[in-house]
């Protein structure tokens, strides 16, 4: 029975009706997934050709946020650990990139793996003691990390590297010779490529043996341990991987904004990631892009509605969103899909 089912998988939907065996719903799910993936790619590739430079820059920024939210989702959505300190890893990545480019004139491309590795190590080391903390206490520990970050970056002994309060200005990279794009368009495609690569890696990680271990820890740590999952190792690894993603996002953010300063990496940034995560849907990887869009555009929309009350408008939008879609974009998409199926 396996052979016909396999051949119809690749053929079109109309003649698939003939073999009504099993994977009909699964097949339709697969089709929907592929259609949405291809639509996303086409739209994403077309954006720089359709919009002005500033809008392209904004979309690049959105992708950067999406990568950071993807990292947070790996930690919170799949491992059940809570973090308010991801602005610290974002800052670490951003400063790594900026210092490498400014002081050692390293090419921007090589700053990304460096930022990733440094943030992975930092996240792993932070994860080790944080292991003993759960829920609200972990939130407080990461919270203090977020509070400390801007102040550590301003410390006078580090000023030679970090530029103190002034921060570091870096030069916007040119596209490689022979590529007919301007700087903003090139950076957009570069960020998109990095983002897609990271997304595929995250997806594979989640579907792997390690991914199942992470989810087992989230769902029931005691049961996971008795099944032989090394809790300490996996939780620290989750923290490290999540920090790696956020650090790469930070490096990309520094490159596209061409500037890093301590006060861009406050608790507000961590909270923005968290809001983006919930809006996109906890535990649903594609949600990151919705989260990124929300984080970037909704404050502007709120400001457009009312200058003086922009915070209030933002808050009301947020509350309405939670009312209408308590599980974020993920729940919304799932609801639409189940409508389509029935």
């Amino acid at each position: 029975m396996a052979a016909p089912a396999e051949t119809t998988l690749s053929s079109s939907a109309s003649d698939a009706v003939a073999s009504v065996e099993m994977p009909r719903a699964a097949r339709r799910d697969g089709t929907i997934a592929w259609v949405s993936r291809i639509t996303f790619l086409v739209v994403a590739l077309a954006i720089p050709l359709l919009f002005k430079n500033f809008v392209v820059f904004q979309f690049t920024q959105m992708l950067v946020y999406a990568i950071a939210i993807l990292g947070l989702n790996l930690l919170t959505g799949f491992n059940g650990q809570f973090s308010l300190g991801h602005s610290a890893f974002y800052a670490l990545g951003a400063y790594t990139a900026a210092i490498m480019m400014d002081q050692y004139s390293v090419s921007y491309i090589w700053t990304l793996p460096a930022a990733g590795v440094i943030c992975f190590v930092a996240g792993f080391l932070f994860g080790l003691p944080a292991l003993r903390l759960e829920g609200i206490y972990l939130a407080l520990a990461t919270f203090s990390l977020a509070i400390a970050t801007p102040q550590i970056l301003k410390l006078s002994p580090l000023e030679h590297w970090t530029g103190g309060v002034q921060g570091i200005v870096i030069i916007k990279p040119d596209p490689p010779p022979g590529v007919p794009l301007n700087q903003d368009q090139w950076l957009y495609y570069f960020t998109l490529a990095v983002g897609l690569l990271l997304y595929i890696l995250a997806r594979n990680l989640v579907k792997s043996r390690s991914g199942r271990a992470l989810m087992a820890i989230r769902d029931n740590p005691i049961a996971a341990r008795s099944m032989g999952v090394n809790l300490a190792l996996y939780k620290s690894l989750a923290f490290g991987t999540s920090a790696l993603y956020t650090g790469i996002a930070g490096a990309l953010g520094a490159i596209i904004i061409q500037f890093v300063a301590p006060d861009s990496f406050t608790l507000v940034l961590s909270i923005a990631f968290l809001v983006g995560l919930v809006v996109g849907g906890v535990g649903w990887l594609p949600g990151a892009i919705f989260g990124g869009a929300f984080v970037l555009f909704v404050p502007n929309i709120a400001e457009g509605v009312s200058k003086g009350l922009s915070g209030a408008v933002y808050g009301i939008i947020l509350i309405l969103l939670i009312y209408l879609m308590p599980t974020g974009a993920a729940g919304f998409v799932r609801a639409v899909l189940s409508r389509l199926k029935s």
């Binding site: 909270i271 968290l274 809001v275 919930v278 809006v279 915070g311 209030a312 933002y314 808050g315 009301i316 947020l318 509350i319 939670i322």
Partner: peptide, 9 residues
């Protein structure tokens, strides 16, 4: 997130 929204409001 709703707490954060309340804070902003």
């Amino acid at each position: 997130v709703v707490f954060i929204a309340l804070l902003a409001i």
